[in-house]
Amino acid sequence: MKKFLLIILVCASLNALILENANAAGISVDAGLTPPQDRWIIRNQFRYMHRKDDPTMMDRKMDTYAFPLVIAYGLRPNLTLMARQRVKHRKMSMAGSISRDTGLDDLFLLAKYKLYRKNTRDYTFGVATTLGMEFPTGDDDFGSETWDLKPGIFTSWRSGPWAADFSTAYQWNGFADKGKDGLNPGNELMVDLAFAHQFSIGGRADMSLSPVLEFNYKHLLSDRLSGQNVSNTGESLFFVSPGLKFTKSSFIMEVLLQFPVWQQQQGSQLRQGTRLIVGTRFMF
């Protein structure tokens, strides 16, 4: 078991391959319910993000491929520890020239604490709070270069085949320091709402398929330098995200498309295109 985890950690480190922010949740189902004690969860995702519609004459475009790996462990029934490492690959094109970069994002550690949970014959309701920390361990142009604090609150409700999840988190970027050249990166607010309906496959109890509909909002404040807002930074994004989740005993596969139905950027930033998330989860 320990060997298996070590291999996964080493592989994730070796895979280390980008500054598109890969937040704005996606597949946020189950967040308010802490897993059982001694439960391991390994979650791997592939996220594709596309930036386009350059308001300037430079015809800029950006494609980002992110590979986050999350390892979670139920230390106590009311406490879950989590580590996330993202590897990113970025392709940028400008006026016909293309550049590619690969690098490691910042390491993110998080603790989730169960505040409340009620299980009844008819429904399950849970509330959990989280406190996360992003360490400035990422490569140049990929990591934030600051210590970032991320508190959040998650709620989950289940009744029969229906599921609803709501979460909100605030990322205080550079809470303890400043970034490169004294730049203070903008803070982020994330609000996610997810609904799902579970269909049992072939009447089997160990297999199900769930259509998922998520609403993801992210507000990123402008970066600040010497007390002034930095131009061309800061944006608001709102996604409507349909998806599918397949569960087979201890394995979950999920696919989500995030359509940016509303967005507002400061200055001449690129606009957000449709995002794709494909992920797997192994639980043991």
């Binding site: 299980n119 399950t124 160990d206 199900s208 979950i252 639980m283």
Partner: peptide, 11 residues
């Protein structure tokens, strides 16, 4: 009570 998907009974 509280098990809500095929993935949670394993724990």
């Amino acid at each position: 009570f509280g098990m809500d998907c095929p993935g949670c009974h394993g724990g």
